[in-house]
Amino acid sequence: MKHWKKVATPTFAIIAFLAFWEFIVWFNHWPNYKMASPSDLIPAYAKYWNLFLIYGWQTLWRTVVGLIVAVIFGTLIGMVMGFSRTMRDALYPLLVGFNAIPKATVVPVIALIFIGQHDFNTILIAFMISFFPISVAVSIGLSTLEPEYRDILRSLGASKWTIFWKIALPKTLPEFFGALKVSVTLAFIGTNLMEIVEPHGRGLGHLFDSGKINADYPLMFAVLIALAFLGIVLYYIVVALEKIFAGWAERPQG
């Protein structure tokens, strides 16, 4: 019953959303160049399904690689800031400033610096846009560790590394996964920024672009929905990982 409900509730919400969308378009008599309806998307998927697979995969793997780099780099920066007050004071303004720069403006710069290296460029933007929440979460998790936790292990003669491995790291995991959920969607935005702003014939962003050039409006909407779908899939992968590694943080409701 519970498992059944867990899948049924979001599925019902999605169906309700699609029905509402279909209704709005039908009710207002909008032509599909103004707003395509869900029923317009099916022919688009049927016609270009192989392109969706190829480009979807390109977008997906580059997003995931960018995200992995963001996790590694973000965690390292977060650790440095979490353990050292001086480093925190030094790095925070830099990070905030860097994060405040609209990444759309960075895309042409990056594209010019690493000209022709399309995969690298795309991964770089996906990484740059998504590491910030992770480093903030890790640094907060580590710097708010209650001193008693450290004392319990230190009084037994544990090394700094042991304290980090046995206490600081697991204790930070809930915050880390919270940030990772935000970063997942950000990384998709990064990948598509590169694919759309600096066209290089790869990824779903490129498919969106060709839809625009050919005035194929249902295709453009179909790409957006495909992106949303990939985002949801990746999000739930993160949720599954969270359940495995930080499931203890979830309290029974009641």
């Binding site: 209650e146 008693e148 936790y149 004392d151 319990i152 009084s155 046995k166 206490i167 697991p170 204790k171 995991l173 930080a246 203890w248 943080a249």
Partner: peptide, 11 residues
């Protein structure tokens, strides 16, 4: 050592 806060590891 034991403290006022039991500092058990929740995980």
């Amino acid at each position: 050592m034991a403290f006022q806060n039991p500092v058990l590891l929740e995980w």
